[in-house]
């Protein structure tokens, strides 16, 4: 009655054929027990029946898919065409999913001029649109903290400011993934679903992540987001220019993060948040290029990194004029 284990009833029945001492009314008891065990098993199957609905959206091919780094070129092509077809089916949008790989000789670094940033939030919005985030939650990889001047203590800041900016005696601190050189999120992932690529971008294989959210707990910059539900984006708003490791529409139940828009930056373009910035506070470039903007800033400006004491070695700098 109690055990939902079907083998219980089998055991009981097979036992019933033998003549064992001790138990009286053996056959009847066995039948009752078997009956209750069957009932329990049936009730269990009924209880977990919502799983069948969930199973419908996962195909066997998707279930068996290997880790991104283990896919052969043909397998990758198959996976990508499957994902494109799925996006068409679920969202009604024709999209192209590329597999952008790092450009040899690049290491991406970001810098933000805190003297200039006025907290207008255009970058937050651009990220939201560029990366096909869920519309109902206004999800974005960027958060901007309004900070009182005279402190770098985020405890004194607020992300829920609104209205006219910049306010007197405040400065604005946009925070997104810092693409750390010692990323704690990568260390803690139990299944290697997230890793750092040669150009410094920390990526997630959305088709390998098991959704344990350990990385979300480990990240000191609140850079990771979990898909608590299937993202909802209207077909006409979907950005069709996608990449496997970047802004393709994510499945439910996995973790995602800022990729420095690798579907743009690995094709030589600037990230969406930078292009959207009306104040020109954002600077992006290849730190291995001696003539790059980013090198000049690091050599000539006072730079600051967030939570330096944690030893995460961010590839993200803040500077002042």
């Amino acid at each position: 009655m109690t055990s939902t284990d079907p083998c219980n009833s089998q055991q009981a029945e097979s036992k019933a054929n033998r003549s064992l001492p001790i138990v009286e009314n053996f056959t009847r008891r066995a039948a009752v027990k078997g009956g209750f065990a069957t009932l329990g098993a049936a009730a269990f199957v009924a209880a977990i029946s919502p799983l069948r609905q969930a199973a419908k959206s996962t195909t066997a091919v998707e279930f068996m898919q290997r880790h991104y780094t283990e896919l052969s070129p043909e397998q990758k092509a198959n996976v990508i065409s499957r994902l494109e077809a799925e996006t068409k089916e679920k969202y009604g949008a024709d999209v192209t999913i590329a597999d952008d790989r790092p450009i040899p000789g690049t290491k991406f670094v970001y810098a933000i001029n805190l003297s200039v940033c006025n907290g207008n939030g255009k970058c937050v919005e651009a990220c939201h649109k560029e990366n096909n985030h869920d519309r109902s939650t206004n999800q974005s990889y960027i958060r901007v903290i309004e900070m009182p001047k005279g402190t770098m203590d985020m405890e004194k800041g607020s992300t829920t400011y609104s209205g006219i900016v910049p306010k007197d005696d405040k400065f604005y601190l946009p925070v997104q993934c810092q693409q750390c050189d010692e990323p704690p999120c990568v260390d803690v992932c139990p299944v290697k679903a997230t890793w750092k690529e040669e150009d410094g971008i920390v990526v997630v294989d959305y088709n390998w992540c098991i959704g344990c959210r350990y990385c979300e707990a480990a990240c000191p910059y609140h850079a990771r987001r979990f898909n608590w539900k299937q993202p909802e984006v209207p077909a006409e708003e979907i950005n069709p220019d996608q990449s496997y490791l970047s802004n393709r529409v994510r499945p439910v139940g996995v973790v995602e993060k800022c990729t420095y828009c690798l579907h743009r930056t690995r094709r030589g373009k600037l990230p969406a948040c930078l292009e959207a910035c009306p104040t020109g506070a954002r600077v992006f470039g290849n730190i291995l290029d001696k003539n790059s903007n980013i090198r000049w800033i690091l050599e000539n400006k006072r730079v600051y990194i967030l939570k330096e004491e944690l030893g995460t070695k961010p590839a993200f700098f803040y500077y002042f004029d």
Binding site: V191, C209, I210, C212, Y214, N227
Partner: peptide, 29 residues
């Protein structure tokens, strides 16, 4: 732990040998 997973269907990724086990770096492993 299993009920906390967003993708329990991918539990097999955690099984050493057939999955990808981030040992010894991840304390979860």
């Amino acid at each position: 732990v299993v009920v906390d997973l967003g993708r329990p269907d991918r539990f097999w990724h955690l099984i050493p040998g057939i999955g990808k086990f981030n040992w010894p770096m991840s304390m979860l492993t």
